[in-house]
Simulated assay, not measured.
Amino acid sequence: MKAEDLFHLGVVADDPESTREEFTALLGYEWGPEVGGAVPVTLPAGDRTVDLRCAYSITEPRLEVVRSVPGTMWEAGGGIHHAGYWSDDVAADATALVARGFVTEATRAGADGGLFFAFLRGTTGLRIELVTRAAEQGLQRCWGAGA
């Protein structure tokens, strides 16, 4: 992982529409569409399917506003929820974070059998989302970039 691989800061909100409107009014942010749906994830308590929806800003630095999912780690709590990084090897980067004291909070398997994403939380509260770089082109469509 490298600092230049940071591609968004995530905020979880109970009312994502109002949250996006506030960022627009205060800071001039523009938004791509809300995307997502039923996503199978592995949580510490086991496998579960959650309705995971978010919208990315078109404006940089890129923000992601995630719709709150009660009873999961995706609950609104105010402030920055996570820092999202591209990863060339999510499993290896997650293992490196665990070795530094991070705890895995959620993972999602990818179509290739590897990890699509992983959320890990450090002892200071820092939460990192690792996202496979293979998803970069597809996710760029969320903010109007790419093919």
Rank of each mutant, 00 (worst) to 15 (best):
L43Q: 13
K2I: 07
G122Q: 08
V103P: 00
I58C: 03
A55H: 07
V11W: 10
I128M: 10
D5C: 02
T104H: 02
A76Y: 01
I80E: 05
F116G: 08
T123I: 06
T132W: 10
T132F: 09
A91I: 05
G36A: 09
A38H: 04
E4R: 07
M1A: 11
G101N: 13
R20L: 12
H82G: 00
D15L: 02
Q137I: 12
E129F: 01
T107Y: 10
Q137S: 15
P40M: 02
W86H: 07
G138M: 07
P44W: 01
Y85T: 08
A96V: 00
G110T: 09
G46R: 07
P61W: 09
V35C: 03
D93M: 06
S68L: 01
A91Y: 02
G79W: 06
F117H: 09
R108G: 14
H8N: 12
F102H: 15
G114C: 15
L43W: 12
G113P: 15
E21K: 14
A109S: 14
S57Y: 03
D5F: 02
L120G: 01
Y56N: 11
P70V: 09
T59L: 05
R121C: 11
E34D: 03
R133M: 06
R100S: 14
E17Q: 13
A134E: 14
L139F: 13
A13H: 08
V11H: 11
A3K: 01
A13S: 15
E22P: 00
A13I: 10
Y56F: 15
P70Q: 10
D89Q: 06
F23R: 01
L120C: 04
V131M: 13
T19K: 07
T19L: 05
D47E: 15
G36Q: 10
L63S: 03
I128G: 05
L120F: 03
A99M: 05
L9Y: 00
G46N: 09
V98P: 01
A55Y: 07
I128L: 15
E75Y: 00
I58K: 13
T24V: 04
A83P: 03
F7G: 00
P44T: 02
L52E: 03
I58L: 12
V131R: 00
F102E: 13
Y85S: 06
L43S: 13
D89E: 08
R100E: 15
D88G: 14
K2L: 11
V11C: 02
G110K: 06
D15E: 14
